[in-house]
């Protein structure tokens, strides 16, 4: 008599039906050897579960905490640095456009400048609000973090846009600064709305 393979026995322990399981079950009914083999398999799994828990000899929390705190400091610094980035970008744009821009460039440049001013104003307000020092509920913290991640993505794209040709760069820069303003608006809303809801 051919007995069941370990693949078949292992498969019989699963909740779903595999191809061949019906035949394997039929075989099992008439084969004591395979029934015992399946029982030993169950027992081995039970003994594995009953193995004593292994414990770490070292407390790793101080390292974890230090890394978490370092990352928070980094994020706070990044938020503060965003204000500087807007100012730097403003100067860079003025230099790139030069003293005698054409009509299309002037229009874009004005709009970019407006978006940058708005972005800077929002960041200053946000910085003054100091969200890092405030306690957030989980949902608000999650939304705020998502918005901050998206702002960071826009900032990276702005750096890349600097390398583009002037006309394409301005269109792209304008789009990105507008997106940045929208995200900062949303982030400000998240913090201020939460504060007013919580009566802070």
């Amino acid at each position: 008599m051919t007995h069941l393979s370990m693949d078949a026995l292992v498969s019989l322990r699963e909740a779903g039906q595999e191809p061949g399981d019906a035949a394997a079950r039929e075989h099992l009914e008439s084969c004591e050897h395979c029934r015992e083999e399946l029982e030993r398999l169950h027992q081995r799994a039970a003994r594995l579960k009953a193995l004593p828990a292994l414990r770490s000899a070292r407390d790793r929390w101080p390292e974890v905490r230090a890394r978490v705190m370092a990352e928070r400091r980094h994020r706070r610094n990044r938020m503060a640095g965003l204000v500087g980035l807007a100012a730097a970008a403003s100067i860079a744009l003025a230099v790139a456009i030069g003293p005698a821009p054409g009509p299309v460039e002037t229009s874009n440049a004005d709009e970019i400048q407006q978006a940058m001013d708005r972005s800077q104003a929002l960041e200053s307000a946000l910085h003054g609000y100091d969200p890092e020092s405030r306690v957030l509920d989980g949902r608000t913290a999650s939304i705020a973090q998502e918005l901050e991640d998206r702002i960071a993505t826009v900032d990276r794209e702005l750096e890349v846009a600097d390398l583009m040709e002037q006309q394409a760069r301005e269109a792209q820069v304008l789009r990105l600064w507008r997106e940045r303003v929208g995200l900062l608006d949303a982030l400000m809303d998240v913090h201020v709305t939460r504060a007013s809801n919580a009566g802070l």
């Binding site: 414990r55 770490s56 306690v135 957030l136 509920d137 989980g138």
Partner: peptide, 21 residues
Amino acid sequence: RAGDPDALEQLYRAFEAPVYN
């Protein structure tokens, strides 16, 4: 979630043993 370090440590202490195992 609100960033309370004591709560983060509580999570660590609660799950440290099964995670290490």
